[in-house]
Design a protein around this nucleic acid. Structure first.
Lengths: 123, 123
DNA sequence: ATTGGTAGCTTGTTATACAAAGTACTAAAG
DNA sequence: CTTTAGTACTTTGTATAACAAGCTACCAAT
C-alpha cells in the first residue's frame, strides 16, 4: 500500500469528468487536454488519455474530426455530443456529492488551498 | 460506461482516507465504520470494508484488539498506529490537492456545501 | 532516403470495489 | 441438547481503469 498508489486510485473516475469539462469549453485534441490537466497538476500520461477518449467516444459522449496541423500529422479534435454534455453534468453532481461525503466523514477538515481568492475563509 | 460505475471509480482511494479518519477519532469496529459512512451517503458493503481493513492492518497503519460484545460474537476494534496517523495526514493532503485540481480544471464549479465550522452529522 | 518530432494507439500489469457465498460465535427457543 | 436467528468476520471471483512501455503513422527538413 503505497501513497503513490492511493493517489492513483483517487484519480479514478475523476479524470472522465475533468476531460469532459475541458472539451465542453472548446474542442480539443489530446495534447491540449494533457496541457490543461498538467497545469492543474493532474498528471496524466498518453497511455491513460487515449484509451479514455476512445471509451468516451464509443459511449457516444464524444465525437471527433480530423484537422490538419501546420506542423505535423493531423489531429483528432474532440467535442461533446448532447449526451456527453448531459453526462458531464451528472458527473459534476456525483463529484459534488463525493466531496460533500468526504467532508462529512472526515469532519470538514478540508481547508481550501492557500489561494488568495476566497474571502469567506475562517478557521 | 455507466454512471454507477463511474461513481464507484470516483470512490476509489477516497475510502481509505475516510476510514482512517473515522478510526482516528475513536477506535471502531466494522459496523461502526459502516454506519458513519452510510450517514455520509458513502455506501460501502462489507465485502469492500473488511479486505480494506485487513490491508491497512497488514501495512502497519492499523492495529486491532478483540473485545467482547454483550450481544453476539466478539468484535475487532481497530485503532490507528502512529504510522497510520501520518499516512492519514498525507492522504488528506492528497485529497485536498485532488479537489483543488478538479476545481481548477472544471472551472471552480464546486460550491461549498456547508461553510460554517460546526459539522453536526445529521443523524 | 534518412532523421527528428508530433500524434495517436496497443499490450500487459496492477490495484481495488463489488457481489455473493461461506465461516464462526452467541443467545434464545424448542 | 439441538435448532434457529442474528451478528461479525472472511474469502473467491469479476470487472474496471490508470499506468509503463513500446509501437505505428504522418509531416517536414536535411
Amino acid at each position: 500500500m503505497k501513497l503513490d498508489n492511493t493517489k492513483v486510485q483517487m484519480k479514478k473516475g475523476v479524470l472522465e469528468y475533468c476531460i469532459l469539462t475541458i472539451i465542453s469549453r472548446e474542442e480539443a485534441y489530446a495534447s491540449d487536454i494533457l496541457e490543461v490537466l498538467k497545469k492543474a497538476r493532474l498528471i496524466v500520461v498518453e497511455g491513460t488519455l487515449y484509451p479514455l477518449l476512445t471509451r468516451l467516444k464509443n459511449s457516444g459522449l464524444l465525437t471527433y474530426e480530423w484537422k490538419e496541423s501546420s506542423s505535423g500529422p493531423p489531429r483528432k479534435y474532440y467535442k461533446l455530443t448532447p449526451k456527453g454534455r448531459e453526462f458531464m453534468e451528472e458527473l459534476g453532481q456525483t463529484w459534488e456529492e463525493l466531496v460533500y461525503a468526504v467532508e462529512l466523514t472526515t469532519g470538514e477538515t478540508i481547508p481550501k488551498h492557500d489561494k488568495t481568492q476566497n474571502n469567506e475563509q475562517n478557521s
